[in-house]
Amino acid sequence: MPSAQLKSTCRATLSCIAAVLLCSWTAPVSAAGDVKPVRKTSKPAPSAAAEDPYEGDPFKSLPWGDMRREYLGGERAVFDERVTVRGPAFAEDPMNVPVTVSVVGLKDIERIVVLVDRNPIRRVLEYQPMTALPAVSFRFKLEQASPVRAAVRTRDGLWHVGGTWVDSAGGGCTVSGATRKDGSWTQTLGQVSARLFESSPATTEASPVPGGGAGAARLRLRVMHPMDTGLVGGIPAFYISRLSVRDAADRELLRLSTYEPVSENPVFSFDFPDRLAGGLRIVGTDNNGNRIDARLE
């Protein structure tokens, strides 16, 4: 629907450069429509994937093949409805686009990689749920309208890919955040606010929400960090690179690798199948070696 809206906008407004650019890049989508029937008439052969430049991608996005090779080790990937990615239809705030990934019905999950095709930096984060449920919510910076994907690797070496489309006015990766602009990040760097909720909200009557509602506990946390992308003149990339949550016995419960596109002062939500005792530790580091270490009683 967003792309149809853009096209009709463009017809009436050829002088609108931004809209024209968006239109011109949706062109491959309609062109792809012509390709599909041809594939159907030919026998599916082992080389079918090679003939389809989109490799079966429902978004028919040309970068997908390169992304699979670069970020998924070139391993086999299937588009799988059990992997859902939810976001808003459009990015009201391109510096804080909420995304919720959840996987229901897949076993033996090793890790989840979130990728954004049209971002100058495509890899957003990598999540190893370990003892947590395979679901994570956070906000990220979106440079322009794009597919937003989650690729889930199961132990058999297969990637299961889901995604959604988010429209955007653009510009989320190439401007500084508020705390970089006013310099206040130096006062708050690495500070953590966190809270454990008794059940994953999906199981409460407040909300019939995504995620399947299997959680018995939810951890939400915010880490203060400017999360500079390196794409703003004179400000090098400066971002949280690793976070993990440990229990009172120092057992690692989940592990997260984060990259430049994660939003300033990121907020994460994690769900757990069982109730958690107190005394959680949130530890991590940024790409400059600053340590994050906080205890949630």
């Binding site: 939810r86 808003p88 009201e92 919720t100 919510s137 909200p201 999906a202 909300s207 939400r220």
Partner: peptide, 30 residues
């Protein structure tokens, strides 16, 4: 206070009289 993430808030139930207001689909996201 219940720990909802922003995406869950976007999908939480809305009373009918508010859902019926003009521009709801775009403005509420904002």
């Amino acid at each position: 206070q219940a720990g909802l993430d922003m995406n869950e808030v976007l999908r939480a139930p809305v009373p009918a009289d508010i859902r019926a207001l003009a521009a709801f689909d775009t403005e509420y996201v904002r």
